[in-house]
Every structure is written in C-alpha cells, then in structure tokens.
Amino acid sequence: MSAVGLPAARRTTLGFERLRLLLRSPAFLVGLGIILFWVSCALFGRLLVDPLADDILNSLAPPSAEHWFGTDELGRDMFARVIAGSRDILVVAPLATLLGIALGTALGLVMGFFPGWVDDVLSRIVEAVLALPLLILALLALTALGASNATVVAAIGLSFMPIVARTVRAAVMTERNLDYVAAARLRGESALHLMGFEILPNILPPIVVELTVRLGYAIFTVATLSFLGVGLQPPSPDWGLAISENYALIGGGYWWTVLFDALAIASLVIAVNLVADGLAEVAE
C-alpha cells in the first residue's frame, strides 16, 4: 500500500527517485512556479501595492501606463487588487481543506472501525448529504451561518466532511482486519488508541492524495462562493468577489474590471491541479 515497512534507506532512495521524476515533469514545474508566484504575492503583495487606496474621481479608467490593469468603480488600481487578491483565498482555501480532512478523517475512522449500526446510521447520513451538489451544500451552510472568512472555512470544511469520510472509511475497512490491528487489540489497547495510533498512520497516503485533490476543489468553491456574494466580503480584493462586483459593467465595455481577475483564478486552480496530478502520478 505504501512505503511503510520498507527499510529507511530504501524509502529515502524512493523519495529521491520520486522527486527526480517530479522535477522532470514540465507540467508539475509550471504549476509549482505559478503557485509560488501567487503565494509570494499573498505574502508580500501588500508591502508593494495598496489595494484599498481609492481615487474615486478617476474611476473605471482603462489600462494605461499608470494603471496597468485600469481602475475599478471606486478608482482603485486593478493591478494592485489582482496582486493582493491572492491573499485571502490562499488563507481560506487551505484552512477549509484541512478542516474538511480532519473532520472527515475522524468520521471515517469511526465509521470504518465500528461496523454494525454505528456505521449503518452514519453511512446513511453521509449518503444523504452527498445527494446534494457540493456548492448547494456550502451555499445553504453560509446562508445559515452568515458570510465571513471564518464561516467560509467552516462551510466548506463541513461540506467536504462526508466525501472525505467515505474515502477514509473504505481505507479503514481494509486495515481493520490486518494482523497488526488484531495484535494491538489483544494487547488491550483502547478503541481510541487503535484508531489514532495504529490505523491512522497506515492510511495516511490516501488521505494525503485526498488532501491535494480537495485543495483544488476548495479554491474553486471559495472563488465561486465569493462570486455569489456569500464568500469573502468587501473590501477584500478577492478575485471572485471582484468579478461579482464588476460583472454588471461588462455590457459597457469595461472588460478590464473582470478579465484579469478571471485569468488569475484560472491560473491558480489550474496550477494547483497540475501539481496535485503530478504528485498523484508519482505516488502510483
């Protein structure tokens, strides 16, 4: 199933081998480069540009030498906002992913470890929630919770929970009857210990793969929720939010107020998936 159980030296060589493979994949490298670019924008962007400074009497100016990407309705520099717009989504999406993975893993461990009525009941509930599209689920959660960075993390985390739980449950099922679990059971270890210290380390690889896949979805979902007005809130220069604020303008030819944000989102999600795909391929 994984490198667990191999001699340490062998594992390191395997690691190096994989890294070498990764570094030979142009798709992976391009993706990594784009991510690093946006991460550095998120970290240092606001030191260089001010996305909030308004110049209201110079609103909706087209791209020029002074404003490379033009200005929005409040006369704010679109270039500054696109650069600084990477920050919130790069904080919220990974946090939401981690929350979803943590909750889903916990639920999946319980479901897989206690077959019988516990698993039956929880499985039915998970199945019921999965009948709804992810976006509808997150949208309903945010309508109930109200929109803020914290609630977006919570809503997406909760929405990820059932699907992660299903993956983890399947992995636990195969591990549960293996010898090392039986041995630990004989030693009289508690259920909590068995789940947390025996089974969990052995199902980490599929969880890590799930994590990278979920991260892509999380970015997708955060951007979408912001576009619908229930995600990140003004005055955040978030890309999805900017498109939502400005798309009524496109009929008037103010294309620069949405185009660069759209391209920024596209570049980030594609990059994350190139990297995730590269990792998954090497892991196989």
């Binding site: 997708f220 979408t224 999805g240 498109i243 496109i250 759209a262 594609i270 795909d277």
Partner: peptide
C-alpha cells in the same frame, strides 16, 4: 484537467466577453 477545475463563472465571463459582447 485544466478545464475541469476552472470555475464556471470564470469561463462564463470569458465566453460572454468574447462571444457575447
């Protein structure tokens, strides 16, 4: 792979800008 992960509103906006407007 790339098309799958780009949110609908992003591709939608670009399509509207190019083919609609």
């Amino acid at each position: 792979l790339s098309a799958t992960v780009v949110p609908e509103f992003v591709s939608g906006i670009v399509l509207i800008l190019v083919f609609g407007i």
